[in-house]
């Protein structure tokens, strides 16, 4: 299985590589369109600020490459947010894969949300073997509201999308690579998607 992590200069991607290594898979970091297109699975990570991350994607042409992928793609954290229609962070237009707009938590709660929260209403084989209300690790200030593409829900200030799916595109707001055994199971499920 050829596993590629899209490398566009967006923060800590070693952790994702190491997480797959612990599962027994070697993931390749790549910014090469050809290599990304040829992969069996593509991970689209992202940490940091949305508009600068999106600018890097556009500058390298990887925005179009990702939009056109046919194999299973997993966006993580900011990666998931950039796969949405837009994000309020830096008034950024996203890749438009998920038909929802990412917005900021209000100051009624502490922002960023940092720590372990629960996922429920699990609706995808991505969550095979994961129980309702299992814990996952999150760090984020912006969130995708509940929509028709929601496949997992977390609650902070209100219920919101902890994961999204459209066709071959999956996105998770949490960090599976840092979510202990539950996260490892989700990464394994992603590799085993039919």
């Amino acid at each position: 299985m050829k596993l590629v992590i899209v490398n566009y200069g967006a923060g800590n991607i070693q952790s994702i590589k190491f997480a797959f290594k612990r599962l027994g898979y070697d993931a390749v970091l790549s910014d090469d369109a050809k290599e990304i297109r040829a992969a069996d699975r593509v991970i689209f990570p992202g940490v940091g600020e949305a508009s600068s991350a999106m600018n890097k994607l556009r500058a390298s042409g990887l925005d179009k490459v990702i939009q056109e992928l046919k194999q299973p793609v997993l966006g993580i954290c900011l990666g998931m947010q950039l796969m949405c229609h837009s994000t309020e962070e830096g008034n950024t237009s996203g890749l438009g894969i998920f038909d929802t707009d990412v917005v900021r938590f209000t100051n009624r709660v502490k922002v960023p949300q940092i720590g372990w929260n629960q996922i429920s209403n699990l609706k995808s084989s991505l969550f095979k073997g994961v129980a309702e209300k299992d814990h996952i690790y999150l760090v984020h200030s912006y969130y995708a509201p509940i929509c028709s593409e929601t496949i997992a829900v977390s609650e902070y200030e209100m219920p919101y999308s902890s994961a999204l799916q459209k066709d071959n595109f999956y996105g998770v707001q949490f960090h599976p690579e840092k979510s202990s055994k539950v996260g490892e199971r989700i990464l394994k499920n992603f590799l085993e998607l039919a």
């Binding site: 070693q14 190491f18 290594k21 690790y137 760090v139 960090h175 840092k178 202990s180 055994k181 490892e184």
Partner: peptide, 11 residues
């Protein structure tokens, strides 16, 4: 840091 990141599955 690298050795920890390789082995540990929490932040």
């Amino acid at each position: 840091v690298k050795r920890v990141a390789e082995k540990v599955n929490i932040p």
